[in-house]
Amino acid sequence: MNKMKGILCLVGLFSSGCIWSSSNELVLGPIPGVSQLYSYPNNCNEICFEAMSLEQTVAHYLDQSLQRDGYAGQVQVRLEDGLVKVRFPDAVPADYGARVMAFLEEGQAGLAAAHQLNDQHLWAYNWRFFLPHGMALENHRSVELLHFPPDDSLMQAQDYLKSKTTDRWAALLTLNGVPPEQTSAYQTIVDLAPVAAPANAGSKLSPTYTAFTPYVKGMIHQWSQTKQSAQSYPMVAFGQPVRQWLAQAYGQQFQYAGAATGKAFATLDLGALDVGGRSVAVLGANHPSQIWYAADPDEYGGDSVKADKIGIQVMGQDLVAACWQAGMGDNPAMDPAGELQQCQQRWPSGSAAVCEQFYQSIRRLNPSEAAERCQSAS
């Protein structure tokens, strides 16, 4: 995006030419382009689950971003001369609109890829294009790399951070010292596919990752950079497909132990990603929902003892990953390897502390029941 004397220049599907923006008033672009980028209407088929106008939809997501960035007030959105115009509260910094436009510009690359997939008949009827709206755009602490957003987040919640996956990881961050009201700042999500789809659509979506790679790389470049331009926020790569994509998409730009010998980037592996000359610390992690499958007795012929054992192992890995994310997000200048070692010491594999958290959060036992179960199993 080119910026000169208050002029925002956008090209492509979304807009063409340059549009003027004041410090607290912003022209997002033409109505059709904004509608596509905001997945409008969000949750309508023949009947809307919650009827919202385009103005209300844009305001809804921008207000989420303001709230998660710690700014009071609400935006005002109006349609005028075929354009969508936004006015921010006076307390919002003058450069906030530029952050919004930079995000939407990256979103154009994602939208272009979605149209390309549709032209190639690779787009499913029950998929919806869905950018990670509502994230903290300025005062976030870390980046999360995931697969795709569940369709409920768009069609029902209209909140990218409202799902079983994000709720579980927020709880793990809280266990590692992040106040509940601040967890959203750590969960700035970039999905390999900006597609709201049913939870079981992973295998069908994986072939689309290549098409979305320019969009994903653009988002990582933008959201990994701190206000100190030479420093980067930490990133957590959740799940085997994401970890595999990262190693393939960045090649030699991504360094981790075992890369030279072809060893896969695995859970609790630590890597360094070169993003525009900046080093981004990346930790491999399980997908937040993996534990529900790993701890399901039906996966082991009804063997609940085995399910608990594997579930506790996964819980330990998740607690360490969330600990690292919390610590590095709080202070990106820390040594990533040293922080990982401290987190492994805090949550030793197979320890009573890990065991009790598993039985409380996954088996839904109260603290005393969980402690008793862990003591009897030791």
Score class of each variant (00 low, 15 high):
residue 146 L to N: 14
residue 150 P to W: 00
residue 150 P to K: 00
residue 151 D to Y: 00
residue 151 D to V: 00
residue 151 D to Q: 02
residue 152 D to T: 06
residue 153 S to P: 01
residue 154 L to R: 01
residue 157 A to Y: 13
residue 157 A to M: 13
residue 158 Q to R: 09
residue 158 Q to M: 07
residue 159 D to Y: 03
residue 161 L to V: 02
residue 161 L to S: 05
residue 161 L to C: 07
residue 163 S to W: 02
residue 164 K to P: 08
residue 164 K to T: 15
residue 165 T to H: 09
residue 166 T to S: 11
residue 170 A to K: 05
residue 171 A to I: 09
residue 173 L to T: 02
residue 174 T to M: 03
residue 176 N to Y: 04
residue 176 N to K: 05
residue 178 V to T: 04
residue 178 V to A: 03
residue 180 P to D: 01
residue 181 E to T: 03
residue 181 E to S: 05
residue 182 Q to I: 09
residue 183 T to L: 01
residue 183 T to R: 00
residue 183 T to K: 01
residue 186 Y to C: 10
residue 189 I to N: 15
residue 189 I to D: 12
residue 190 V to F: 05
residue 190 V to M: 07
residue 191 D to Y: 11
residue 191 D to T: 13
residue 192 L to D: 04
residue 192 L to P: 11
residue 193 A to W: 05
residue 193 A to H: 05
residue 194 P to H: 08
residue 195 V to E: 01
residue 195 V to D: 00
residue 195 V to T: 08
residue 198 P to H: 01
residue 199 A to V: 07
residue 199 A to D: 06
residue 199 A to I: 08
residue 201 A to P: 01
residue 201 A to D: 05
residue 201 A to H: 02
residue 202 G to A: 11
residue 211 A to G: 03
residue 213 T to M: 09
residue 214 P to K: 07
residue 214 P to W: 07
residue 214 P to Q: 03
residue 216 V to S: 07
residue 217 K to W: 04
residue 218 G to V: 14
residue 220 I to R: 12
residue 220 I to E: 08
residue 221 H to Q: 15
residue 221 H to F: 15
residue 221 H to C: 08
residue 223 W to V: 07
residue 223 W to I: 06
residue 223 W to L: 11
residue 225 Q to D: 06
residue 226 T to M: 14
residue 226 T to Q: 15
residue 227 K to E: 15
residue 227 K to D: 14
residue 231 Q to V: 14
residue 231 Q to C: 07
residue 233 Y to R: 15
residue 233 Y to Q: 08
residue 235 M to F: 11
residue 236 V to W: 13
residue 237 A to K: 14
residue 238 F to P: 06
residue 241 P to A: 06
residue 243 R to V: 01
residue 243 R to G: 06
residue 244 Q to L: 09
residue 244 Q to S: 12
residue 244 Q to K: 15
residue 245 W to L: 12
residue 246 L to E: 15
residue 247 A to V: 09
residue 247 A to W: 10
residue 248 Q to H: 13
residue 248 Q to Y: 09
residue 251 G to I: 11
